[in-house]
């Protein structure tokens, strides 16, 4: 194989596909690794990840309320769609705000990296809400528990990432993680208010 035709992640070959998949898998498990990379990240693609997590979460809530007779089938579809769109936009917005805060505090961090970090931090949330959905399909209702557990797990890589950047500033990571978490929770509340 002509190595010159294959870049570091091997795009353009069958081997490249697996390399890229492996890279994304490792990145989703350890998003902090993004901070060490020097390349540009296509943040708009990474945002599909949290959007799918939010879609699954609101689908769970929709199914739960449908069973209780509070939602119609159309409302379930609407809330899931709103979750998908809001997941994309809100997480992107949080990433942008965070990049601005970090720049203000003197950390030179490109916004694409910050947005990609926040987006990839949703791995554990996707995993949690997926488990919740399976649990839900067996007739059990605990979407809030799985969603909250997922949200807290999302804060972990963000916390670790800020910690890596802000060495010696012990209060910076918990404060930023709090801000991110509060924005996420209020966005959920907003969607529920819109649909209700």
């Amino acid at each position: 194989m002509d190595k010159n035709k294959v870049n570091s992640r091997g795009r353009g070959s069958s081997e490249g596909f697996f390399d890229k998949f492996k890279y994304l898998l490792l990145l989703s498990l350890n998003p902090v690794g993004l901070l060490k990379s020097s390349e540009k990240h296509r943040w708009y693609i990474y945002l599909v990840f949290p959007a799918s997590g939010w879609l699954l979460f609101f689908l769970q809530i929709g199914i739960e309320r449908f069973r209780q007779g509070m939602f119609t089938a159309w409302t379930v579809i609407l809330i899931s769609f709103l979750g998908l769109v809001a997941g994309y936009l809100v997480v992107g917005f949080i990433g942008w705000i965070l990049a601005y805060i970090l720049a203000y505090l003197g950390y030179d961090m490109a916004p694409d990296k910050v947005i990609a970090l926040i987006a990839m931090s949703h791995t554990y949330m996707v995993f949690s809400v997926l488990l919740g959905l399976i649990y839900n399909l067996f007739g059990n209702s605990s979407s809030a528990s799985f969603g909250i557990a997922g949200l807290l797990c999302t804060l972990m890589p963000i916390y670790a990432g800020i910690r890596t950047l802000g060495k010696g500033k012990a209060f910076l990571p918990p404060l930023i993680a709090t801000l991110v978490g509060v924005i996420l929770l209020f966005s959920w509340q907003l969607i529920l208010i819109i649909v209700s």
């Binding site: 909250i148 949200l151 807290l152 804060l155 972990m156 916390y159 012990a170 209060f171 990571p173 918990p174 404060l175 993680a177 709090t178 991110v180 978490g181 509060v182 929770l185 209020f186």
Partner: peptide, 13 residues
């Protein structure tokens, strides 16, 4: 200290 965001979010929830 990561208990700070968890506690604040718990109260908000």
């Amino acid at each position: 200290l990561i208990s700070i965001p968890m506690c604040v979010l718990m109260m908000v929830t």
